[in-house]
Write a protein that binds this DNA or RNA. Structure first.
Length: 636
DNA sequence: GCTTGCTCAGGCTA
DNA sequence: CTAGCCTGAGCAAG
C-alpha cells in the first residue's frame, strides 16, 4: 500500500482514516448511577429507542402537510435517462402531494423527561460511532425541517399571506417533539452525552434541546427538579453561558456564572435579589455532590443565520458558590466553575485560535505554515499549507487546478448543446427558466444555503442574464472560507477551515483533469488510480431528508442525473479537495452541479457541508470505495 | 391531571 | 446598528 506521499501516480490523500461501520449496539457498557439514584435496569438500548413518526398533534401537521406538499420532491417527475429529455420536462403544475390529507397521525402524549440520572463512563468505538450517527441524524432532520419551513414561509410571503412571527427553529423542534424525535429524554444524562463532541456548534437553542444537550429553550440552567430527584433536591446538569447577565465573567477554563432570577419579564436589568431556589439551588447541590456540568457557550460571530453560535465546551465542576453584591447592587448568586482536565480543546478557544490565524501574516505564525496559498491565486481565497510534523510539502508539487479541465472535444460539444439561460434581470424567481430545470424551485435559499440535496442541480450560468450575485449561482462563486491543507499523524493530509462552516453551505469544488469513459478504461487498465464520481455514495440524499417526521417524504429524483462514466485524474493537477479524508460519518458530501454547460454526463463535483463544522475541525467525505480499501488495510 | 409563572430566544421594526 | 417589542414553548412548581 502506497503512502499518501510516495505513490508515483495517485498521490491524493484520502487514505488512512478508517472507521468501522456503525453496528447495532450491545448493551453492556458501564453506567454508574449517581448518588442514591437506582441502578440502571433497562440497559442503554433505551437511549436508541426513537419511535417512528406516528404520533403528534394534528394542527401543526395539517398546516405543514398542505404547505410542504407543494415543495417537497415527489415521485411524479419521471423521465428517461436521456439528457435531452431532462431539459424538456416542464415545471410540474401541481406536484403530487407527498403528504396526503388523510394521513393518519395517532395522538400520543409527548413523553415527559425522565428523572433517572445516569452517567455514561466509557463507550466502545462502535458505540461511539452509533451514537454519533444518531446525533447527526437528529441534527440533519432539525436543520432540514428548519430550512424547509423557511422556504415554505418565504413562498407564502410571495403570495401575500401574512405571518405574525416566524420561528422556523421552534417549529422544526415542535415537529420533532410530536414525533418523539428528541434525544436523551428518557434518561437524565450526567456528564458527556454519547455522540456529542466537545467543540460541536449549534445555531439555535432549540437544537440543543432536540439532541438533549440542554433542556431549556430559554433557561440557562438545566436541572433535575427537586420533586423528581430521589433526594428531593434539584441537581444541575448543564448551563448555557450566553453572557446574558451583566455579572458573568468568562475566562475559558474558569467560568464565573451568575444564577437566574431577579429580573422582570425579558428585561436585561436586575430588579430584585436572586434567591437560592430552582436552578440556583441545583447548581449549589451539584457542587456539593461533585456533579459535572455540561457547559455551552454562546458566542457572537459575523456569519451564520443569527449572528450567534452555541459551542459545547465540555464538562466543568462547580467549585465555589457565593452571594455577590452585583454591579446593580442587588444580590446575585455566583458560581465558579472549573473545567475538568483531560478533555478535547475547548470549541470556543478554537474560534479564538482560528481568528488569530485570520489576522496574522505567514511569517508571524508559528512554525508549520509552509505556504500561504498553494492555489497561487487561482481560488477566490488563499489556501494555506500546514505541516508541523515533517518536511513533506507534497501539495506544492502539483499543478493547481481550481476548476476541472475538460477534454477539448467534450468542451466543444458543450458549446453546441443548444443551452440557453434565464432572462431574469434582477432576482430569479420561480418562473425563471433555470428554476424550471430544477423542477420549479431553486436548490438554495436566499442566503445561499442548500435546502436539500438533489441528484443534480442546475445553477444559473454563463448563458443567463441574471447578475453574478444571483443566489442560484452559489457553488460557482468559489470558496468563501479560508481553507487549509494540513498534515497530521492520523490522516496523512487533511483539509480544514479557519472559519466555521454552516451546514448546507458550499465548501469547494472537486477538481482535476476530466477523462472520458474510454480514457478512464484505458488508464484504469494501466493501473492508474482515478477519482470516479459515480462511486461517491448518494450522501446528498441525507441532506434535506425529513422522512423521520414526514414518512411519505421521498428523496428527490429530479433533475435526473445519468450514470456518470467519466473520471478525474488528479495525479498531475488537482485542487485542495483531493486532500479530503474519508469517513463513514462524513461532515461534507458530494453534490453534482451544472452551470457552464448543460451536459448532465459531466457535472461539476461540488462539496457541501452536512453539519455545522467548527473552525479547524477536519473535513471528511464518504468516498464509498473506501470500505473495500479499508478492509484490505485492516487485513494487513 | 391542569394551570401558571419563569426563562441568558430570536425575529422584526422603528 | 441597536433598543425595544412581541411571541414563543418547554419546564418546574403549585
Amino acid at each position: 500500500m502506497a503512502s499518501p506521499s510516495s505513490s508515483s501516480h495517485l498521490n491524493f490523500a484520502f487514505v488512512p482514516k478508517i472507521e468501522p461501520k456503525a453496528e447495532p449496539l450491545e448493551l453492556d457498557f458501564p453506567i454508574s448511577p449517581i448518588g442514591r439514584m437506582p441502578n440502571l435496569t433497562h440497559g442503554i438500548s433505551e437511549l436508541t429507542s426513537l419511535s417512528p413518526a406516528t404520533d403528534g398533534e394534528e394542527k401543526l401537521f395539517t398546516e405543514y402537510h398542505r404547505l410542504i406538499s407543494t415543495l417537497l420532491p415527489t415521485s411524479g417527475a419521471t423521465g428517461s435517462s436521456d439528457s435531452t429529455a431532462v431539459l424538456a420536462v416542464p415545471i410540474p403544475d401541481s406536484p403530487a402531494p407527498i403528504l396526503t390529507a388523510g394521513m393518519s397521525v395517532n395522538k400520543r402524549r409527548r413523553r415527559d423527561r425522565s428523572s433517572e440520572m445516569v452517567r455514561i463512563c466509557s463507550l466502545r468505538e462502535k458505540d461511539r460511532i452509533h451514537f454519533r450517527n444518531l446525533i447527526r441524524r437528529a441534527r440533519i432532520t432539525f436543520e432540514s425541517l428548519r430550512l424547509l419551513i423557511k422556504q415554505v414561509e418565504a413562498r407564502e410571503k410571495d403570495f401575500g399571506i401574512p405571518r405574525k412571527s416566524s420561528r422556523p427553529d421552534l417549529k422544526a423542534a415542535a415537529l420533532m417533539t410530536n414525533c418523539d424525535l428528541w434525544l436523551n429524554r428518557h434518561k437524565r444524562i450526567i456528564g458527556s452525552i454519547p455522540g456529542i463532541c466537545v467543540g460541536d456548534i449549534y445555531f439555535f437553542r432549540a437544537e440543543l434541546c432536540v439532541i438533549g444537550l440542554h433542556g431549556h429553550i430559554q433557561g440557562g440552567i438545566d436541572y433535575v427538579s427537586a420533586s423528581r430527584s430521589s433526594t428531593g433536591e434539584p441537581i444541575a446538569t448543564s448551563i448555557v453561558a450566553s453572557g446574558g447577565y451583566e455579572d458573568d465573567e468568562d475566562g475559558g477554563d474558569v467560568l464565573i456564572y451568575s444564577g437566574h432570577g431577579g429580573r422582570e419579564g425579558n428585561l436585561r436589568k436586575m430588579c430584585v435579589s436572586q434567591k437560592l431556589e430552582r436552578g440556583n439551588l441545583a447548581l449549589e447541590r451539584s457542587m456539593r455532590y461533585g456533579i459535572e456540568i455540561r457547559v455551552v457557550r454562546g458566542m457572537k460571530i459575523d456569519r451564520g443565520p443569527n449572528g450567534k453560535v452555541y459551542v459545547y465546551d465540555g464538562l466543568y465542576k462547580v467549585v465555589d458558590c457565593w452571594m455577590d453584591g452585583g454591579k446593580s447592587g442587588l444580590g446575585v448568586y455566583k458560581y465558579k466553575l472549573l473545567r475538568i482536565e483531560g478533555q478535547e480543546e475547548m470549541g470556543s478557544s478554537m474560534f479564538k485560535q482560528a481568528a488569530t490565524l485570520q489576522v496574522s501574516s505567514l511569517s508571524a505564525r508559528k512554525g508549520g505554515y509552509f505556504c500561504s496559498d498553494i492555489s497561487m491565486g487561482r481560488e477566490s481565497l488563499p489556501v494555506s499549507l500546514y505541516n508541523d510534523l515533517d518536511d513533506d510539502k507534497d501539495p506544492l508539487h502539483f499543478q493547481y487546478l481550481a476548476h476541472p479541465l475538460y477534454p477539448p472535444d467534450i468542451q466543444s460539444q458543450f458549446h453546441g448543446d443548444g443551452r440557453r439561460g434565464c432572462e431574469c434581470v434582477t432576482d430569479c424567481s420561480s418562473e425563471c427558466y433555470c428554476a424550471a430545470l430544477n423542477g420549479g424551485e431553486f436548490a438554495y435559499d436566499a442566503g445561499g444555503v442548500l435546502v436539500r440535496g438533489k441528484p443534480l442541480i442546475y445553477e444559473c450560468g454563463t448563458a443567463c442574464m441574471c447578475p453574478p450575485s444571483c443566489p442560484n449561482r452559489e457553488s460557482q462563486k468559489g470558496i468563501r472560507r479560508r481553507l487549509e491543507v494540513f498534515r497530521s499523524n492520523e490522516i496523512g493530509w487533511g483539509v480544514r477551515s479557519w472559519d466555521l462552516v454552516q451546514a448546507g453551505t458550499f465548501v469547494c469544488e472537486y477538481s482535476g483533469i476530466v477523462l472520458t469513459k474510454e480514457q478512464t478504461e484505458l488508464l484504469s487498465f494501466a493501473g492508474e488510480n482515478l477519482v470516479h464520481p459515480s462511486r461517491f455514495p448518494a450522501r446528498w440524499a441525507e441532506w434535506g431528508d425529513v422522512s423521520d417526521v414526514f414518512p411519505n417524504y421521498m428523496t428527490p429524483r429530479y433533475p435526473l442525473s445519468p450514470e456518470l462514466s467519466f473520471s478525474l485524474d488528479v495525479s498531475r493537477a488537482r485542487n485542495l479537495a483531493c486532500y479530503l479524508s474519508h469517513s463513514c460519518s462524513p461532515n461534507v458530501f458530494m453534490q453534482f452541479v451544472l452551470y457552464d454547460h448543460h451536459n448532465p454526463s459531466f457535472p461539476h463535483l461540488m462539496i457541501f457541508a452536512m453539519e455545522n463544522i467548527p473552525p479547524l475541525r477536519e473535513l471528511s467525505i464518504d468516498y464509498g470505495v473506501m470500505d473495500e480499501w479499508a478492509q484490505k488495510l485492516i487485513a494487513m
